[in-house]
């Protein structure tokens, strides 16, 4: 969910950015990180823990905690909470430690 009305901050309409998440088309806006775009679309599970496959979401949002690692454009372990979203990105849930191609 996005904020449209706020007593202090302005959230003007921004350019739409299209991306893919696990094969499905989604959109975010300019200024989004990958994770903020997914959360705005109601997607909160970003990855799984390596051994027990427990769901992982955003925790710190500043690139510290490693809870948001995903595979982006076929590169694993991208910190999606601090990586800007860009047009045509292919974002995938990451299984385990990811595969470096």
């Amino acid at each position: 969910m996005r904020i449209f009305k706020h007593p202090i901050l302005d959230f003007p309409k921004k350019k739409v950015i299209h991306f893919q998440f696990d094969g499905v088309e989604f959109s975010g806006v300019e200024g989004d990180t990958i994770a903020s775009a997914l959360y705005a679309n109601g997607i909160k599970k970003l990855s799984e823990s390596v051994e027990r496959h427990r769901a992982r979401g955003l925790y710190c949002a500043i690139g510290n905690c490693s809870s948001c690692y995903m595979t982006v454009d076929h590169i694993p372990n991208i910190k999606t909470c601090v990586t800007p979203l860009s047009e045509g990105m292919i974002v995938e849930s990451q299984i385990g430690k990811g595969v470096i191609r």
């Binding site: 996005r2 904020i3 200024g31 989004d32 990180t33 903020s36 970003l46 992982r56 979401g57 955003l58």
Partner: peptide, 25 residues
């Protein structure tokens, strides 16, 4: 405590005030 939807306070602030996205309702 590792379930998605559980955030640090700084993260909630970042999500709302920087990206204009609500952490939940």
């Amino acid at each position: 405590n590792d379930l998605p939807g559980i955030y640090g306070a700084g993260a909630v602030q970042t999500l709302m005030n920087l990206y204009g996205v609500l952490p939940g309702q």
